[in-house]
């Protein structure tokens, strides 16, 4: 008797996903690093005519004040990376800690934490971030990063809690307990590695979210104040001239999308190569 076993939906080879992610993210990282030491023009300098189109002198043109767009885009890469890494790091630190605590907590404390997290998640990320920024004295890049980190931590905590609970009931945890392993040790060697593959993909998603949310905050004037050229601010400034000089909006938009996609591909590829059960089939 021969049966056909349904195969998993076709999926690009793992290495391709990983490489595509590496190249996209690498491009932004390289640009961001380069912007620290070299820029084509003074970022705030009005170096050209207003709203110039692309040329050899200004590769993607100038904005409505005559500043070089490519220079701003490069600085934007750096800001986006700092915001993404910073917000995810803060969100992960708070979220994973809370989530693990909730997974171990007594029933009522766990319920209380879960309910609090549900309420936090029900609030749009951006709204929480706006509240945090509004509560701090001045809007700065750092207040935006902290705000986004706190907003993201609720989702991380919720995910960590449920993932950790799922690992906690496995026999290998009981086996480790029987052999006299302490809880901190079990968290470090069994729980964190086993929830990491799922968490890391979530972190990548969050990275993209944070970059986009920072752009939104900047767009609303709550992010990094001028003259910081974040992509969100560039989009906001290009708003009025989107029909006459569309490149001013398209360029930062494309940069934003390429970084978000790159990080997701990278995380997907990394997850597959970290998880031995997904390796080399």
């Amino acid at each position: 008797m021969s049966t056909t076993i349904a195969s998993a939906p076709a999926r690009p080879p793992r290495s391709l996903i990983l490489w595509a992610g590496l190249i996209l993210v690498g491009l932004h990282v390289a640009t961001g690093l380069l912007s620290l030491v070299w820029l084509p023009y003074e970022p705030t300098g009005m170096v050209g005519m207003r709203l110039e189109g692309p040329s050899l002198v200004h590769w993607i043109g100038t904005d409505r004040l005559g500043r070089d767009l490519f220079t701003q885009l490069m600085i934007g890469s750096r800001i986006a990376l700092v915001v993404g890494i910073g917000a995810v790091a803060i969100g992960a630190a708070i979220g994973v800690t809370l989530g693990i605590l909730a997974a171990f907590a007594s029933k009522w404390l766990d319920d209380a934490l879960a309910a609090t997290l549900d309420i936090l998640i029900a609030f749009p990320t951006l709204l929480i971030a706006m509240l945090v920024v509004a509560a701090s004295d001045t809007a700065s890049l750092w207040s935006a990063i902290v705000a986004l980190g706190i907003a993201l931590s609720a989702i991380v905590a919720r995910l960590t809690r449920i993932l950790a609970k799922r690992v906690l009931v496995m026999d290998y945890i009981t086996a480790a307990r029987t052999s006299g392993s302490s809880w901190p040790k079990i968290v470090a060697i069994h729980i964190l590695p086993n929830i990491w593959p799922t968490l890391s993909v979530n972190f990548a998603l969050q990275f993209g979210l944070a970059v986009i949310a920072e752009a939104s905050l900047s767009y609303l004037g709550l992010g990094a104040p001028p003259p910081n050229a974040s992509w969100g601010r560039m989009l906001q400034e290009a708003q009025g001239t989107v029909y006459t000089a569309p490149l001013g909006a398209i360029a930062p938009g494309l940069a934003l999308v390429s970084l978000a996609i790159g990080v997701n591909l990278l995380a997907d590829g990394l997850r597959d190569s970290i998880d031995p059960t997904r390796r080399a089939r």
Partner: peptide, 28 residues
């Protein structure tokens, strides 16, 4: 309390479970 039992567990008793796949950490 758990903490006092940790020392006892390692030396007094150990358990072998029914399903060996879930009794081993899949990522280690």
């Amino acid at each position: 309390p758990d903490r006092q039992l940790d020392g006892l567990r390692g030396t007094a008793a150990a358990i072998v479970f029914q399903e060996p796949l879930t009794a081993l950490d899949p990522l280690m």
